[in-house]
Design a protein around this nucleic acid. Sequence first.
DNA 1: GAAGTTAGTTAACTCTACTAACAATCAAAG
DNA 2: CTTTGATTGTTAGTAGAGTTAACTAACTTC
Lengths: 388, 388
Amino acid sequence: MPSVRDRGHSKRTGAATLPSDGRANNLSLVRRTLHADGAMSRAELSRTLGLTRVTVSDLVSDLLDRGHVVELGQSGEVRPGKPAILVDINRQGLQVIGVDLSGETALRAAVLDLDGNILERLERPVGNATGQAATGQAVVEQVLELVAETAARATAPLLGIGVGTPGIVSGDGVVLTAPNLGWSEVPVRELLEQHTGLPTLVSNDADAAVHADHTFGGGCDDEILIKIGRGVGSGVIVGGRRARGAHSAAGEIGHVTVGTDPGTLCVCGRTGCLETWMSVPSLERALAVAAAGDDPKAATAVVYQEAGERLAIALAPVVGVLDLAEVVLSGPRHLLGGPLLDAVQRTLLARLLHQDPQPVTVRLAEDPQDIVLRGAAVMVLWNQLGVA
Amino acid sequence: MPSVRDRGHSKRTGAATLPSDGRANNLSLVRRTLHADGAMSRAELSRTLGLTRVTVSDLVSDLLDRGHVVELGQSGEVRPGKPAILVDINRQGLQVIGVDLSGETALRAAVLDLDGNILERLERPVGNATGQAATGQAVVEQVLELVAETAARATAPLLGIGVGTPGIVSGDGVVLTAPNLGWSEVPVRELLEQHTGLPTLVSNDADAAVHADHTFGGGCDDEILIKIGRGVGSGVIVGGRRARGAHSAAGEIGHVTVGTDPGTLCVCGRTGCLETWMSVPSLERALAVAAAGDDPKAATAVVYQEAGERLAIALAPVVGVLDLAEVVLSGPRHLLGGPLLDAVQRTLLARLLHQDPQPVTVRLAEDPQDIVLRGAAVMVLWNQLGVA
DNA sequence: GAAGTTAGTTAACTCTACTAACAATCAAAG
DNA sequence: CTTTGATTGTTAGTAGAGTTAACTAACTTC
């Protein structure tokens, strides 16, 4: 019979702070420092964190027991005093599963290490025998199978599963709506946790991507990542935290009307949506038309120019209101790099009042193919280790 | 001689958590609960916070010593058991100073209570003998005098000073640039703290305003407040926290270019800035022109309509990306209420893809005259008591 | 008046981080 | 080669914060 004031392990209704919460925070702090700054001695950790050597020793001993950190032996440093024993986060001994459901042709999953490196990669073509894309329950079962197979490939204990999916995802891991997958109110987190027994986190694909860029891609604490694929989505980091939105729908930018001229018809039934310029199908269609015209070179340039301008027109108020330092584009490099990127940067600066010569930089994301997988891993690392 | 590891009172370089930090958090939690939910007994606090009665008693006794809370005597409730002693935050016994430097005609300051009520109000016309607006050092001295006079009117111990000022304010209370006041790199916080000995907080006026709306005006955890006066500024709350921006310049929306048509020339030298439609001078100018035309009624309607549309065009990407639930307009009600507000709401919904019939509501702020003063007070309450 | 209920306090325990002191191990000076 | 000093990491004991268990106080209900 559970006690009236059952709080289990730090699961409490109120937000009050217990001594153990402070301890948990300090344990995370040690893990985070090692993850970010690399192996160091207990004494160095003590100086970095502002805790005493005694406390750090105790924290590290706790983390050694849990397998979160490992001792690497004596530091090679030559100096007076007792030689230091290097401690590092257990980079080899812990792994994570990342899942990317946003692919157009395949569901993808991978085993990653704590640094976001992909160790094993699995794909499952999305679609059934008739060539149509599978939807609804069929996709759910494919995902469960794919994750189970991926988990079997892990060569070290798994910390958990991260999932990046198209659509809108609630805070407790329920995919509220994902038209591409034929999903509505699918409790992905619950399903995966029951199926695998591993802690699971689910986010929108663009949200996962911005986590990856923020942690591994050199992103800053005020950035937006625009993920351009079949549609256009985004993830935003404001003051170091990802914006979730009042209805868990932050980042939805594809169907915002851009500009004050008519614009072309969108699949959503309205006109002038950002996606009519910036999605990969829209871009490719426009490029094909340009290539068939009289002056393909000039027409192609115009396509890139116009798409970049439209994105910047939509982004200018966002960048201005949030004072973002970085705009990151993630998608096919051959489409987004070069002239399109330049147009975004140029138009953005032209539409913002700024004192700095470069208040905001526009760049491409690294490894756009794997960015969702790595972002999904980041979510797990943050949730389970407080790392990232 | 100070110790090597001098940490004073919870001033630490690292972000490590000490037991005393947890205590401080719980003390804030008690104050916040009382401030938000009103007087209650220790036992009720215990149930609300999830801490034991013992701990709550200890916390409350601590807060009684500090004068932050007071006992109100027995609750009138009739039920079995020992009668409860009501405890409330010390609403009468603590006061705050709010300062608003954004007025066009006067510097304003006030003594406020913990509920944001204005108890004493002081103004000082901004400008010198020649009728020109005072700038630079002259304004600084006027502010220092005004605050000192206001502090003298307080009838209870002062928790601190909050300042809302035009311009861009750094995290440590330095006004980086404020053209209207002729300020550049003015350390307002430091100056006021030295002059008064009271803890001081400084923010942009629109940022202060959104704090007021969030705390006292029924705002939610994902909202933007547009402050329309001589210029147009904004303050944004994302996930319950105010966005500050990479260069402390979040909220700067007045000189973002809106739309893809030419637009009119702005004082900043570019065309199409939001301020050319939405600032009070711009609106009044357009209304005067309309009133002088053939069909004043229709022309006036067009002015409101166009201004509202322009604001919504700028806001749509922001609302979409952040999934904001509320857009609040603060400024002269006769200009912003009615047709303009309707146009904003209508255009915003038309430019966003939404499933909810009402994903975002647009409304006017309460008491626009005092919103900055109250917001400045909120900043102090939050900083000193963890309340709000 | 007895029984049951609720509020608030006291006493003893646990957990966390701290200070003080010490053992281990190296480089550099004499 | 020894001494000195520096640095790491651990052990022992202390102070603070929150907990459980038990108690007193004061009320309603039967």
